[in-house]
């Protein structure tokens, strides 16, 4: 028997509200979103009358990348920057995590620390440079300190919010099973908040990278941020482009690593 002719609504298209998008279509649009700006950049830079100092083309930037890698020890700049960002970020996370658990769990700690943190986080990290130089000096720790200042206060507040969002029923269920205060924090609140906390780490890692250039304002003589600043002095616009793009790429890779870790660590959130 032949299939009955169908009537009625068709499969919704991709432009219906919250409509479906196949994998192929997804990658198509993603590629489009990357290639169109690249094309525009390339097109604009090769127009007659556009000075390379104002807008170097993709080819110039690539050549500079190769030159930087072969002649100027690009990798040591990359590694020292990764080191500074990671150290600032890790120290920040190590202090923020226990504080956030306390702020999100105990109201007195929240009252004690949250207004203060809210106040400090609006202070510009750049403005702390003279103070950091005064107190910490001008060696590696000063760069790490700037990244710490830029990241820590936001991180604490966001993590405290993650902790506060643990469903009360999960906490109370433990209490009615006989959990004491310490056990409730350790076995329920921290465990329940973990996925959100890792997500917050991922987001704040991105912010840590945005403070790199600021951090390398402090008496640095290496690093991606420092290189961008130096290139500015010599009007090497193509080198500025390389530095910015590299920071973006490193950030993207780290972001993906965090997402991968999230999937591996919390498989029950990725069942479908």
């Amino acid at each position: 028997m032949p299939a009955a002719p169908r009537t009625g609504a068709r499969r919704p298209g991709m432009w219906t509200i919250r409509g479906p998008l196949s994998r192929r279509q997804y990658w198509l649009f993603a590629a489009l979103g990357l290639l169109v700006p690249l094309g525009l950049w390339w097109g604009t830079s090769s127009l007659a009358g556009v000075d390379k100092v104002f807008l170097p083309g993709p080819a110039d930037v690539f050549n500079r990348l190769v030159a930087w890698y072969t002649e100027d020890d690009l990798m040591s700049d990359v590694w020292i920057s990764i080191y500074r960002v990671t150290m600032g970020f890790v120290i920040s996370a190590a202090i923020a995590l226990p504080l956030a658990l306390l702020i999100g769990t105990f109201r007195p700690v929240q009252a004690l620390l949250e207004p203060l943190t809210d106040f400090i986080r609006y202070m510009p990290a750049v403005a702390f440079i003279p103070l950091v130089m005064l107190w910490v000096g001008i060696d590696e720790s000063s760069k790490i300190a700037i990244i710490f200042i830029g990241t820590f206060f936001q991180m604490v507040l966001m993590m405290a919010e993650d902790v506060r969002r643990v469903p009360l029923a999960q906490i109370e269920a433990a209490q009615t099973m006989g959990a004491d205060r310490g056990e409730t924090v350790k076995l329920v609140i921290f465990q329940a908040a973990k996925p959100a906390l890792l997500d917050t780490l991922r987001v704040t890692m991105g912010w840590a990278w945005t403070y790199l250039v600021v951090a390398e304002l402090v008496a640095a003589n290496s690093g991606l941020g420092y290189s961008i600043l130096k290139a500015q002095r010599f009007l090497q616009t193509d080198k500025i482009f390389v530095g910015i793009i590299l920071i973006g790429l490193i950030g993207l890779v780290m972001d993906q690593l965090f997402r991968l870790a999230h999937r591996k660590a919390f498989p029950w959130l990725y069942l479908r």
């Binding site: 029923a169 999960q170 099973m177 329940a192 959130l269």
Partner: peptide, 17 residues
């Protein structure tokens, strides 16, 4: 609260991990 008086809630009380 104590283990002699167990409680069942409407939802969100199980530990998803």
């Amino acid at each position: 609260p104590g283990a002699d008086r167990a409680m069942v809630f409407q939802h969100y009380s199980l530990y998803p991990w």
